[in-house]
Protein backbone atom coordinates (compact mmCIF):
# COMPACT_ATOMS: atom_id res chain seq x y z
CA UNK A 1 0.00 0.00 0.00
CA UNK A 2 1.48 3.33 -0.99
CA UNK A 3 1.52 6.50 1.08
CA UNK A 4 0.28 9.55 -0.75
CA UNK A 5 0.68 13.11 0.42
CA UNK A 6 -2.29 15.43 0.10
CA UNK A 7 -1.94 19.19 0.03
CA UNK A 8 -5.15 21.00 0.87
CA UNK A 9 -4.98 24.69 0.10
CA UNK A 10 -7.26 27.20 1.81
CA UNK A 11 -7.93 30.89 1.17
CA UNK A 12 -9.08 31.86 4.61
CA UNK A 13 -7.64 31.20 8.06
CA UNK A 14 -11.02 30.83 9.75
CA UNK A 15 -12.07 28.16 7.25
CA UNK A 16 -8.73 26.44 7.73
CA UNK A 17 -9.07 26.45 11.50
CA UNK A 18 -12.58 24.96 11.32
CA UNK A 19 -11.32 22.39 8.85
CA UNK A 20 -8.40 21.39 11.09
CA UNK A 21 -10.80 20.79 13.97
CA UNK A 22 -13.20 18.81 11.77
CA UNK A 23 -10.48 16.66 10.24
CA UNK A 24 -8.83 15.90 13.54
CA UNK A 25 -12.23 15.00 15.00
CA UNK A 26 -12.44 12.35 12.28
CA UNK A 27 -9.16 10.83 13.43
CA UNK A 28 -7.18 11.89 10.43
CA UNK A 29 -3.65 12.96 11.28
CA UNK A 30 -2.51 16.31 9.97
CA UNK A 31 1.17 16.28 9.17
CA UNK A 32 1.79 20.01 9.00
CA UNK A 33 0.12 23.37 8.36
CA UNK A 34 1.86 26.21 6.55
CA UNK A 35 0.48 29.72 6.86
CA UNK A 36 1.55 33.27 5.95
CA UNK A 37 0.95 34.50 9.49
CA UNK A 38 0.38 33.21 13.00
CA UNK A 39 -3.17 31.92 13.47
CA UNK A 40 -4.33 32.11 17.04
CA UNK A 41 -5.69 28.83 18.30
CA UNK A 42 -4.14 26.79 15.50
CA UNK A 43 -1.52 25.23 17.78
CA UNK A 44 -4.24 24.02 20.16
CA UNK A 45 -6.41 22.80 17.30
CA UNK A 46 -3.48 20.82 15.90
CA UNK A 47 -2.71 19.42 19.34
CA UNK A 48 0.78 20.95 19.46
CA UNK A 49 2.48 21.04 22.83
CA UNK A 50 3.12 24.40 24.43
CA UNK A 51 6.48 25.85 23.55
CA UNK A 52 9.10 26.11 26.27
CA UNK A 53 10.89 29.17 24.86
CA UNK A 54 9.90 31.36 27.81
CA UNK A 55 11.23 28.85 30.32
CA UNK A 56 14.51 28.78 28.42
CA UNK A 57 14.62 32.58 28.47
CA UNK A 58 14.25 32.51 32.24
CA UNK A 59 17.07 29.99 32.62
CA UNK A 60 19.31 32.00 30.29
CA UNK A 61 18.51 35.15 32.26
CA UNK A 62 19.55 33.45 35.50
CA UNK A 63 22.74 32.33 33.78
CA UNK A 64 23.44 35.90 32.63
CA UNK A 65 22.85 37.25 36.10
CA UNK A 66 25.20 34.69 37.68
CA UNK A 67 27.95 35.15 35.11
CA UNK A 68 27.65 38.94 35.38
CA UNK A 69 27.94 38.76 39.16
CA UNK A 70 30.90 36.39 38.91
CA UNK A 71 32.66 38.69 36.45
CA UNK A 72 32.17 41.81 38.58
CA UNK A 73 33.14 39.98 41.77
CA UNK A 74 36.36 38.80 40.22
CA UNK A 75 37.24 42.14 38.70
CA UNK A 76 36.18 44.56 41.42
CA UNK A 77 36.65 42.57 44.62
CA UNK A 78 39.24 39.86 43.98
CA UNK A 79 41.57 40.85 41.17
CA UNK A 80 42.03 44.58 41.65
CA UNK A 81 40.11 46.12 44.54
CA UNK A 82 40.30 49.90 44.40
CA UNK A 83 39.01 52.65 46.61
CA UNK A 84 36.87 54.68 44.27
CA UNK A 85 35.26 57.71 45.87
CA UNK A 86 35.19 55.86 49.21
CA UNK A 87 32.73 53.28 47.93
CA UNK A 88 32.95 50.04 49.92
CA UNK A 89 35.17 47.69 47.95
CA UNK A 90 35.84 44.90 50.43
CA UNK A 91 32.75 42.83 49.87
CA UNK A 92 30.55 42.26 46.87
CA UNK A 93 27.51 42.66 49.08
CA UNK A 94 28.35 46.19 50.20
CA UNK A 95 29.39 47.37 46.77
CA UNK A 96 26.45 45.75 45.01
CA UNK A 97 24.06 48.70 44.62
CA UNK A 98 26.53 50.18 42.14
CA UNK A 99 26.58 46.91 40.20
CA UNK A 100 22.82 46.56 39.76
CA UNK A 101 22.62 48.29 36.36
CA UNK A 102 25.25 46.03 34.82
CA UNK A 103 23.82 42.89 36.43
CA UNK A 104 20.46 43.81 34.91
CA UNK A 105 21.98 44.40 31.47
CA UNK A 106 23.81 41.05 31.63
CA UNK A 107 20.55 39.29 32.48
CA UNK A 108 18.72 40.82 29.53
CA UNK A 109 21.66 40.32 27.17
CA UNK A 110 21.89 36.60 27.90
CA UNK A 111 18.14 35.95 28.01
CA UNK A 112 17.41 37.73 24.72
CA UNK A 113 20.31 36.44 22.67
CA UNK A 114 20.40 32.86 23.87
CA UNK A 115 16.62 32.53 23.56
CA UNK A 116 16.74 33.85 20.00
CA UNK A 117 19.56 31.46 19.12
CA UNK A 118 17.62 28.57 20.67
CA UNK A 119 14.58 29.58 18.64
CA UNK A 120 16.57 29.61 15.40
CA UNK A 121 18.18 26.25 16.14
CA UNK A 122 14.93 24.58 17.21
CA UNK A 123 13.18 25.80 14.07
CA UNK A 124 16.14 24.89 11.87
CA UNK A 125 16.51 28.46 10.65
CA UNK A 126 19.96 29.60 9.53
CA UNK A 127 21.42 31.75 6.76
CA UNK A 128 21.35 29.64 3.63
CA UNK A 129 18.55 27.38 4.85
CA UNK A 130 15.94 26.44 2.29
CA UNK A 131 12.20 26.56 2.74
CA UNK A 132 10.45 23.19 2.78
CA UNK A 133 7.02 24.61 2.06
CA UNK A 134 5.41 22.64 -0.79
CA UNK A 135 3.87 25.79 -2.24
CA UNK A 136 5.44 29.25 -2.47
CA UNK A 137 2.08 30.94 -2.03
CA UNK A 138 2.03 29.99 1.66
CA UNK A 139 4.05 33.06 2.55
CA UNK A 140 1.65 35.26 0.60
CA UNK A 141 -2.06 34.49 0.96
CA UNK A 142 -2.62 30.71 0.97
CA UNK A 143 -2.93 28.30 3.90
CA UNK A 144 -1.73 24.78 3.26
CA UNK A 145 -2.51 21.57 5.09
CA UNK A 146 -0.37 18.45 4.61
CA UNK A 147 -1.95 15.05 5.20
CA UNK A 148 -0.30 11.68 4.61
CA UNK A 149 -2.77 9.01 3.50
CA UNK A 150 -2.23 5.30 3.29
CA UNK A 151 -4.15 3.70 0.44
CA UNK A 152 -7.29 5.29 -0.92
CA UNK A 153 -7.15 9.06 -0.56
CA UNK A 154 -10.59 9.93 -1.88
CA UNK A 155 -12.41 10.10 1.51
CA UNK A 156 -9.79 12.54 2.84
CA UNK A 157 -10.02 14.58 -0.35
CA UNK A 158 -13.76 14.71 0.03
CA UNK A 159 -13.34 15.80 3.61
CA UNK A 160 -11.00 18.60 2.56
CA UNK A 161 -13.37 19.84 -0.13
CA UNK A 162 -16.30 19.68 2.23
CA UNK A 163 -14.50 21.75 4.87
CA UNK A 164 -13.54 24.48 2.43
CA UNK A 165 -10.26 23.66 0.65
CA UNK A 166 -10.14 25.57 -2.62
CA UNK A 167 -7.45 23.42 -4.18
CA UNK A 168 -6.19 19.90 -3.51
CA UNK A 169 -2.93 18.54 -4.85
CA UNK A 170 -1.73 15.01 -4.47
CA UNK A 171 1.81 13.72 -4.51
CA UNK A 172 2.43 10.02 -4.85
CA UNK A 173 5.21 8.63 -2.75
Amino acid sequence: MSTNTLYGIFDDEEVLLASVKEIRANNIEIEEVFSPFAIHGLDKALGLKETRMAIMAFIYGCLGLSLGALMIYNIMIVDWPQNIGGKPNFTFYHNMPAFVPILFECTVLFAAHLMSITYLIRCGLFPGGTSDSPDERTTDDKFLMVINVDGDSSPVKEMLTKTGATEINEKEA
Binding site: E32, V33, F34, S35, P36, F37, A38, I39, L42, D43, L46, L48, T51, M53, Y119, L120, R122, C123, G124, L125, F126, P127, G128, G129, T130, S131, D132, S133, T138, T139
Partner: peptide, 12 residues
Protein backbone atom coordinates in the same frame (compact mmCIF):
# COMPACT_ATOMS: atom_id res chain seq x y z
CA UNK B 1 16.91 31.75 6.91
CA UNK B 2 14.73 29.18 5.12
CA UNK B 3 11.49 30.25 6.81
CA UNK B 4 8.43 28.31 5.63
CA UNK B 5 5.68 29.25 8.10
CA UNK B 6 5.00 25.95 9.87
CA UNK B 7 2.45 25.94 12.67
CA UNK B 8 5.05 25.03 15.30
CA UNK B 9 7.39 27.76 14.08
CA UNK B 10 4.63 30.34 14.31
CA UNK B 11 3.83 29.21 17.82
CA UNK B 12 7.46 29.65 18.86
Amino acid sequence: FGWSGKAKHWQR
